[in-house]
Design a protein around this nucleic acid. Structure first.
Lengths: 236, 236
DNA sequence: CGAATAGTGTCTCTTAGACACTATGTC
DNA sequence: GACATAGTGTCTAAGAGACACTATTCG
């Protein structure tokens, strides 16, 4: 390691794991059992191993907390390295954003740390603060997810292998916190080539007329974009 | 610093400093004087000090290399931490993206390290490789800049305090590597509230009819977006 | 049958893009 | 005047959003 005035830091990955459960955007949170911030909610995460890639560390933590190994979207969010963000010393955290379908078994392969689904917005507002700077990280993760729904096909990462258009719409409505016209949404999604592919099968799990089932299409960037409604001509 | 299987890493910031010079998108590069990668081009950067914020470290490096302290856009790009990206040991680099107007004095407050403007795309293709993983970082920085021009008013960060619509258009054309219709571009920019504000002054520096001068407007997000032309219905 | 959800058709308004045309400076 | 660049008007095609209407299941 090079010398001079350099400095070393401990290196962690923290995860913002989002899913849609019922009508709420949920995030995976753990209750801290040790100081500092004992008893407070925190994002799951842990130290990067000596010879480990950052992304591998994130995947490992995700697996340890949820049992999920594939089928999840995982991307680097941002890095947080304020000198005193951790009272124990200089700890730099590389945050990752994961988007998951609503899992049948919420925390299958859980080890000691007990992970819980919490309403993401509620966790931000109440509970007078998450541990460390995790409120900021969560806020950034939510905003990233919201904006990526606009111009990518990432919303499908919140759905199961097979899903209906209505379920996909429910993802948008929940993440954005808005209502969308079902008819326009249907026309838009089915008209955007590569967004979804019909499987030929149908389901009646939502009642009413059977709905076609779709899987994710090949496109990752949407054109034209699926714009969030209710924004004026410009924003800050 | 907590114990167990944790690990510490040296922490650096690297800068992707972009500007538009003539008809080329240029990036600030330094020629390495020491091993490893001696004699190769690299992005400017350096170690984070013991009690320093990451953003402060990036601002400090930017100032040391260019003499620029304000008026520049500076944002975190991504973090690169492969175990062996630096042969000297585990070095994690937090990359920042800076967008500057074409400076009258390219490297005013330069210290020992000599920084040069290089054509960004040329540097990526020729020169058989930048040092470390800097080609990847540069690639990511360029792509970030390109996509942010679409939905933010960031293009004005490449211009001086006062600029003409044609100069702003030239930024888009250079960064995206396309040609835009001057008439439609003018109508679009002047019709998007908050993008630019007229100063009342004019200039004839481009020849022809005098052009109005503008300054940056209050908006940072553009609605509707300024979409890159020549993209089909979807990508990738 | 009625209730519920799926999916289509149609209309209007806004915007992108193409391009004719006018405006105002320099040589 | 010729030339160059600035800026406006107009037309067309495509997408967003509103919403009437048809389709297909369950009870």
């Amino acid at each position: 390691v090079p010398g001079d005035i350099s400095m070393t830091a401990a290196l962690t990955v923290d995860l913002v794991v989002l899913t849609v459960r019922g009508d709420s955007l949920s995030v995976l949170a753990v209750r801290r059992g040790v100081t500092p911030y004992k008893g407070r909610w925190a994002l799951p995460g842990g130290f990067v191993l000596a010879d480990e890639e950052l992304l591998d560390a994130a995947e490992r933590e995700l697996y340890e907390e949820t049992g999920v190994s594939v089928d999840a979207h995982l991307e680097q969010l941002a890095t947080y390295g304020s000198p005193h963000r951790d009272p124990r010393g200089r700890v730099v955290s590389v945050a990752y954003l994961a988007l998951l379908p609503n899992l049948p078994s919420p925390k299958a392969g859980t080890d000691a740390a007990e992970a819980h689904w919490r309403d993401a917005l509620e966790l931000l507002e109440k509970d007078r603060g998450l541990a460390f700077d995790h409120a900021q990280i969560l806020q950034d993760g939510i905003e990233r997810a919201r904006s990526k729904l606009e111009y990518t096909s990432l919303a499908a990462a919140f759905c199961n292998e097979e899903f209906t258009i209505a379920e996909l719409r429910h993802v948008y409505e929940t993440v954005w916190g808005v209502s969308l016209d079902p008819r326009n949404f249907h026309r838009k999604v089915s008209g955007t080539e590569g967004f979804v592919e019909p499987t030929g099968r149908t389901t009646t799990r939502d009642g009413g007329r059977p709905a076609q089932l779709f899987r994710r299409g090949g496109a990752s960037l949407l054109h034209p974009a699926m714009l969030r409604p209710g924004r004026g001509c410009l924003l800050r």
